Simulated assay, not measured.
Amino acid sequence: MKRYALLDAQGQPIRSAERGTVGGHRRSRLYGCLDCPAALRAIARGGYVAHRVFFKDEATARAAGYRPCAVCMARAYTEWKALAP
C-alpha cells in the first residue's frame, strides 16, 4: 500500500494511505489546488518544490495556519482576507 506524506492540523508530518487534496508552500504558508496555475509555474521554475507540502483537505490546511491561494481559490481567499486581523 502506498503511503503519502501529509501535514496534520498542527503542521506535523504524518503518513497517510490517502493522497492529499490540496498542496501548500511551507515558507509562504499558503495552500491551493494541486493543479493551481501559479503553483505549476513556480514548480516549472524550480524554486517551489523543496518547500511543497500536502494536506488531506482545506480544513486541515487552515488549522495548520495556512491561507488559501488568491489565484486558484479566489473565493476562499476573499473570505479569509475579510476575516484576517
Rank of each mutant, 00 (worst) to 15 (best):
F55N: 03
K81Q: 15
R19E: 12
R75H: 14
A84H: 14
T60R: 00
R3T: 13
G11A: 10
T60A: 00
Q12D: 10
L34W: 00
R15T: 12
Y66W: 07
D57R: 01
V49S: 13
L30I: 15
R67F: 11
R26F: 12
G23C: 06
R62I: 07
S28W: 07
Y31E: 03
I43M: 13
F55L: 04
R75K: 15
L6S: 08
A64R: 06
A9E: 15
D35F: 09
E18P: 04
A64N: 07
R3Y: 06
R19F: 02
Q10P: 01
V22H: 02
E58S: 07
Y66R: 03
R52A: 15
A50N: 14
C72D: 04
V22P: 00
A63T: 07
L30T: 14
G65L: 03
A42Y: 07
V53S: 02
Y48E: 12
R3F: 07
A70N: 12
G65T: 07
C69Y: 05
P68F: 01
C33T: 08
K2P: 12
R41G: 13
C36G: 10
G32I: 03
I14Y: 02
L7V: 09
T60P: 02
R3E: 13
A38T: 11
Y31N: 02
H25K: 02
A76R: 04
M73H: 08
A5R: 14
R27F: 09
P68N: 01
A38L: 09
